[in-house]
């Protein structure tokens, strides 16, 4: 099949960008979306035009490196990562608009590549359990109720791709934040730092320039790992309790 691509091109973060139109022929429905872009790039290389820069690494939906806004949807029309989106989700003759994640906290570095360092800095602010190597007690010394372990796992499934931020009309990273708060907060090991963690991470979130959450729910609809919205409720509850405790 043949598709028309409208792709955001921007040489670097200091320059202005614009949409460019390309046509890609002989697209097979078994191709992943990124493999279709590989074909485009091979074509551009032959024509002497700079290939389109986009991020991807594992291409099996777990590393979180890829992420494109495809026809106005983060990661495109399926609930999955961009690398696991296949061209069978499109039709012959489709026009596909491809844009980078748009968030001032994620500056565009080139074309479709953005800088998501803000997410790392939020983890640095408190997204961990402080335990030095070698100081851990025997693993079975603290049983964890299975339901808590399952809920922690569901939140820990976050891959840090940034789709929640990209999809949120407010540009908020609350789903990412809530996922980490819930993951660590559900576990007994995470209790000692529970209050300081949420306060510090929220402060860093706001400092990075992400928007505030208005509980709209676009984030969870875009999340390729289907992190539920209740992690944001957990985040809010933990923040309320922490503030009540004088943090």
């Amino acid at each position: 099949m043949k598709v028309t691509l409208k792709i955001w091109r921007q040489p670097d973060s200091a320059s202005q960008g614009a949409m460019h139109t390309y046509e890609v022929d002989q697209v097979s429905e078994d191709m992943s979306f990124l493999e279709m872009l590989d074909v485009l790039n091979e074509q551009l290389n032959t024509q002497g035009e700079d290939p389109v820069a986009f991020d991807s690494d594992c291409r099996e939906g777990i590393c979180g490196m890829c992420g494109l806004m495809i026809n106005g949807q983060a990661h495109g029309p399926e609930v999955t990562t961009t690398c696991q989106l296949h061209m069978r989700s499109f039709k012959d003759g489709d026009e596909i608009v491809v844009e980078p994640w748009r968030s001032d906290a994620f500056p565009v570095l080139k074309d479709l590549v953005v800088d998501r360092g803000a997410l790392d800095r939020m983890i640095q602010a408190g997204g961990f359990i402080s335990v030095n190597t070698g100081s851990a007690p025997e693993a079975h010394s603290v049983p964890v109720p299975r339901d808590d372990a399952v809920r922690a796992f569901n939140a820990a499934a976050c891959i840090g791709c940034g789709a929640c931020v990209a999809a949120c009309p407010n540009g908020s990273a609350s789903l990412f934040l809530g996922a980490k708060i819930t993951h660590l907060g559900e576990l007994p090991q995470g209790q000692p730092e529970r209050h300081s963690r949420v306060v510090d991470m929220v402060a860093q979130h706001d400092h990075e320039g992400f928007g505030g959450c208005t509980n709209i729910g676009e984030c969870t609809a875009a999340c390729p790992k289907e992190i539920p919205l209740d992690v944001i409720s957990q985040l809010n509850r933990d923040l309320r309790v922490a503030m009540a405790h004088g943090h």
């Binding site: 409208k6 955001w8 949409m19 806004m69 026809n71 106005g72 949807q73 608009v97 844009e99 748009r102 968030s103 001032d104 906290a105 999809a167 009309p169 407010n170 540009g171 908020s172 320039g209 992400f210 928007g211 505030g212 208005t214 709209i216 729910g217 676009e218 984030c219 969870t220 609809a221 875009a222």
Partner: peptide, 21 residues
Amino acid sequence: LWHRSGKARTSKYVVKKNLGS
């Protein structure tokens, strides 16, 4: 909140769909 969300995304999407809201 309005101000923050405005600052959080100063360049808008060309196409943006709403799905979960």
